[in-house]
Write a protein that binds this DNA or RNA. Sequence first.
DNA 1: CTGTTAGCGCTTTCAG
DNA 2: CTGAAAGCGCTAACAG
Lengths: 330, 330
Amino acid sequence: MATIKDVAREAGLSTGTISKALHDPQKVSRKNQVKIEAAIKKLNYKPNMLAQKFRASTSKTLVVMVPDIANLFFAKVISGIEAVAQAAGFSVLLGDTKDSLEREREFIRMVETRLADGLINLRPYYKDEALLPIKGVPSVTASSSSGTPSYSVRIDNVAASEKIVKHLIGLGHKRIGVISGLHHNPHTIDRLEGYKKALSQAGIDYDEDLVVEGDFNYWSGLSAAEQFCQMPNMPTAFFCMNDEMAIAAMKGFIDKGFCIPQDLSVAGFDDMDVSRYVVPTLTTVAQPAEKIGEKAAEMLISLIQGDTPKSEEVILPFEFIIRESTGPFQ
Amino acid sequence: MATIKDVAREAGLSTGTISKALHDPQKVSRKNQVKIEAAIKKLNYKPNMLAQKFRASTSKTLVVMVPDIANLFFAKVISGIEAVAQAAGFSVLLGDTKDSLEREREFIRMVETRLADGLINLRPYYKDEALLPIKGVPSVTASSSSGTPSYSVRIDNVAASEKIVKHLIGLGHKRIGVISGLHHNPHTIDRLEGYKKALSQAGIDYDEDLVVEGDFNYWSGLSAAEQFCQMPNMPTAFFCMNDEMAIAAMKGFIDKGFCIPQDLSVAGFDDMDVSRYVVPTLTTVAQPAEKIGEKAAEMLISLIQGDTPKSEEVILPFEFIIRESTGPFQ
DNA sequence: CTGTTAGCGCTTTCAG
DNA sequence: CTGAAAGCGCTAACAG
């Protein structure tokens, strides 16, 4: 592998001149520029960026910590991060933590050891197992919940849920079931709060028996639907805390002979690609996933560059999408 | 930021000893080990990995080039890559190329400039715009088609398609339509070959009018379905080259009043998550996405370490999944 | 405009 | 077992 020294020798110049020619060509005579180019081509010289970064002691790299990259929502956020990072000359190191705190520590270590300049965290914030923020490691949490400390970018989960539930109430529903995420999940907490707010504004009492806990996965939605079907006084509408569980619940209800939305209304959260394809198509809330990624990357990069973002928290607008799965109470 | 020198001074030892204590603790006296640990803790010393890598002149990093990270199939492959890379002490740099050759060049440059040790390419191989392989850039192509040069990991697209079409033929179908990808796409070519093979073995003539070109996206599947509906002698079964188009086609056929699988059979390719949820559920082929990623990473790492993998091409088994969308010809 | 030189933080001989 | 010193490839400061 040719080094800058080799190029210098080949061109009959000093390494300093080569370096300057590479970074500040105007400061090198035309004649020597040509010589240098020739030498570079002849030796197929490529600057050693490891050396460059070492010397500059800045890696121009962001690490993105994601609980599960094979989750489309996260993949979209990452897509947004990548776009901004690349435009700003940063690379992105992918850290799939598979929900392990141990791995999270490793990735945080990467920025402590100068391998990366900062970090975007895609896991929602849990008070009791928060590794971040840490002094000296610039970090932004994307798609978290209310109460996330330090820098974060997200939608207003409370307001979004409130909107969904109000829509159901507006359709005449009074008994509205919830298929939630795990109860300690920050998103669950926010979304449940929105549900309660909507109810109370409509003068409907909160009944915790109408909340069945799921875990954001398909099977939990199916089993929640079955539980609801056995209730003596079953709800007529359902707010599911993500689309996957909503789709599963619809399947469960349909298999029991219910028609959606004639007999039961179902709403989700996330707007997965699927949600447009299923029958009936699903009423839901779309998070601007790519946008969240872009904002988070912008925020982190300005943090790295020593600026102080004007706000610690960026709240992005969500989109409420009414499709076929919700209809009037009959 | 404390350096090894600071630790040496604090501990009253030389930098060489600190370094040794960090990498080969047995070769340092117990007493000094304790001193060193204390100094490290006191100064909160973290080794500068940029310096380490520079010196070792190996980055322990793989770059993964992906046409679109917000595509679940790719996300799953990456998940597999990440797992293996991490276990082997490699980081993965994500390169979302958004289908731009320019960006591909940048990522290839990263390994030429020592920023990464090797590269996994997730874009299928096109003869006329092949940037790889390049001497000095260890690379593996994942999920490509037959005829990909150099190292690759994939399923046998020809055999998988053949299997699907044989299944349709076995159900009594004789006129089998195809919704293909773009005609020059390597996957399209392989899958079409499988289709032809199955036909010829059943003594059915190939009729190119039954092949409608799509582009692997939803809308193209829908419009292909409409085209088929206008044919005087419409096929009774359809082989769609991915699930997205298959799902769109089903929607199109259903909207025209056809019942699936009673009137028409539809098969896809990929086994997206959706494909289990749609009504009717979709007959398709599952590619072992994570496995493909794992194998590709293993192959690349052994390449980087100077081993020569025994085979240039790893063919992984696919899974043929019969669901509700295909049924007997009536 | 060009050359010389020091030094980034670390590891690794080689002596002691 | 420990210390001294060289050097990885590059850039920047300074002198010429």
